[in-house]
Design a protein around this nucleic acid. Structure first.
Lengths: 190, 190
DNA sequence: GCATTTGCCTAGGACCACTAGGCAAAGTTA
DNA sequence: TAACTTTGCCTAGTGGTCCTAGGCAAATGC
């Protein structure tokens, strides 16, 4: 019988696309196999198990979002950079909810696995942006955490319908960026 | 054969406790039934299905967290109230990760179900706190959203190990509260 | 053209959510 | 107390999920 031409990358990509459609946690190996016209057991020649697949999707999504963010802030600084970063991030989360959810999973790896040049670069983008605001350690790390928390929390609440007040969420979003900008400019140094 | 004395409330409570132990999304009806020394089919006399149970746990957790928050901010205002609110909320999320996760699920109810006095009161607590900062609509709603997003994002990132920088997360947390306070005091009015 | 590797298969186990129908314990009424 | 009703937990069974073991044929290397 003809082969389907599966590879870890093709499976990961299909899983990411399916996650964007139906939700990251609803992606099953069975459904994925059906999409390829293949039995679910066949996938195990290419991926270790479901957790492995999820980790791969998370890595893929992480690369994609980092590429976009790096491109968005390139050559910008201050509020310009912050706005570009924030809006690019939010667009990604809205256009690719499954991929975005994947980036939030707890990756079960030993600490050394986090020390790749790729992850290093991904972490560097927001740090560089905030350094341009004149922040230095430990304020820098605190501010990065505040930014990440605020963005992530906002996307999550938007995605799960947590904002049911009639006010437009995009208007609130723009005000949030304004607020964060003025906060970063007037950061209460320790 | 003797009866186990199950009720919807006892099942919900057990589910919430189990969620705190093993994680909200890992709670299964089978495991819950085993805990009661009962077959899983028996639970269906008391709850409709898994989604129903999750909704009940979410409601329970929501009541609990609101009680604590309301008690924490009672009689306080300004930074005092903000700090009490933030720390109480964070403590709850850390002590009861399963219950906290439950409060974040997308509740599938028609809009009218959201209009109970209980939910109204729960929403009112942060609004009242921010009104004391001199904010009024629409800034008020924007600020509430910013607070919720920041808190939720922070808890989530802390819980999933998103902060792997060596700096102590509690130190960053205290700085975050400082930063939010100064932001609220100097809110860029529209 | 033959041997090796590799990709997808069938078969099957364990766990899960959920339904249908049965029986006995608890509650109700006289 | 005795009969009737309600209700709580049961067994049995379906279909979905993840995952393993072992087989066979297609692709690859010599």
């Amino acid at each position: 019988m003809a082969r389907a031409g599966l590879t870890p990358d093709r499976i990961t990509l299909a899983a990411a696309d399916l996650a964007d459609e139906i939700g990251f946690d609803k992606v099953t190996l069975s459904a994925l196999a059906r999409g390829f016209g293949v039995k679910d057991a066949s996938l195990y020649s290419h991926i270790k198990n479901l957790a492995d697949l999820r980790t791969r999707v998370a890595a893929l999504a992480g690369r994609e979002v980092h590429e976009r963010l790096a491109a968005a802030v390139a050559g910008r600084a201050g509020k310009d950079a912050l706005t570009a970063f924030a809006n690019t991030y939010r667009d990604f989360a809205q256009e690719h909810p499954g991929r975005y959810a994947a980036t939030q999973i707890q990756i079960q790896l030993d600490a050394s696995a986090f020390d790749t040049p790729e992850i290093r670069r991904a972490i560097e983008t927001p740090y560089a942006m905030l350094r341009a605001y004149g922040l230095s350690e430990p304020d820098l790390t605190d501010a990065v955490r505040l930014l990440r928390a605020t963005f992530h929390g906002y996307f999550q609440l938007e995605a799960t319908g947590g904002f049911n007040h009639p006010r437009d969420t995009t208007a609130s979003w723009n005000r949030t960026i304004d607020a964060l900008h003025s906060l970063l400019e007037n950061w209460p140094h320790s």
